[in-house]
């Protein structure tokens, strides 16, 4: 591949920023909501910012806070939060083909910014597109900047402006809708569609299993379904 033909990293970075920026509209409200809830539970601004910068994982932050509030032991609160985040090990593994050979200092910040929306944007771009690693790094950084930035900023804003935010209806549902919208363009062949259907059904059946294990089993079931159907399709030519 000739590097003269590939676009400059700065150009690709801005493509990432362009693709990531609209997600401010969905990540922002969820982050505001976390700030509101944290402030209502009596967390200081520093503690709220501690959560949003050190953890950057919405669902886990909510789960952990709720459990602490309910008087659960710290070990249970942290364990549940980590179980909610265990899906990110799968994200980490599925980025290995794209970033596995990048220097450690790059992989270190890639891991820090590996939130759901950044991951989905990266995969939407990388799947089926050949480009040099420098471009991929630049795109990932560009997509992560607005998404991680707004998460941290809006958590702090929500903590400061509690009452106004809590009044907007439907904000709680912005994140599930984001995930649904992001997955639809990926359902372009039969194995992918079947994987999604199986994962959805298993997650519904197993939603009462402890420690988020229903979701993880459902994801595993979906992945196996997709891989088996792909293998069968190849075997039949």
């Amino acid at each position: 591949m000739s590097s003269a033909l590939s676009p400059r990293p700065a150009t690709v970075f801005w493509e990432g920023v362009r693709d990531g920026t609209p997600f401010i509209v969905m990540v922002g409200p969820f982050a505001l909501l976390f700030g509101v809830v944290a402030a209502e539970l009596g967390l200081s601004l520093a503690e709220t910012l501690g959560f949003s910068t050190l953890v950057i994982a919405g669902a886990a932050q909510f789960a952990t806070l709720e459990l602490l509030d309910a008087g659960a032991p710290v070990s249970v609160a942290v364990g549940t939060g980590l179980a909610v985040n265990l899906r990110m090990a799968l994200y980490s593994a599925s980025l290995v083909p794209y970033f596995g050979r990048a220097p450690l200092r790059h992989r270190a910040w890639i891991a820090y910014a590996l939130v759901d929306q950044v991951y989905a944007l990266a995969l939407l771009r990388f799947q089926g597109r050949e480009e040099p690693q420098g471009s991929r790094l630049a795109y990932y950084a560009g997509a992560a900047a607005p998404i991680c930035g707004i998460w941290i900023l809006a958590c702090a804003l929500g903590a400061q402006a509690q009452s106004t935010v809590a009044a907007v209806p439907g904000l709680d549902f912005a994140v599930p809708l984001t995930f649904l919208a992001m997955v639809t363009p990926m359902l372009k062949d039969r194995p992918s569609a079947a994987a999604a259907m199986v994962a959805m059904s298993l997650a519904i059946l197993g939603h009462e299993l402890p420690l988020n294990s229903g979701m993880l089993l459902a994801a595993a079931g979906g992945m196996v379904t997709g891989a088996v159907l792909e293998g069968r399709r190849e075997a039949h030519g």
């Binding site: 997955v183 999604a196 994962a199 959805m200 997650a203 939603h207 459902a218």
Partner: peptide
């Protein structure tokens, strides 16, 4: 085989996350 399984991470994880939240919303 691992690569083949990993290709289905997004299409399996996101629906599994969303389905229970749609049927039993926290709000």
């Amino acid at each position: 085989l691992a690569l083949r399984l990993l290709r289905y991470v997004p299409v399996a994880v996101f629906p599994a996350l969303v389905a229970p939240q749609v049927l039993w919303p926290t709000a």
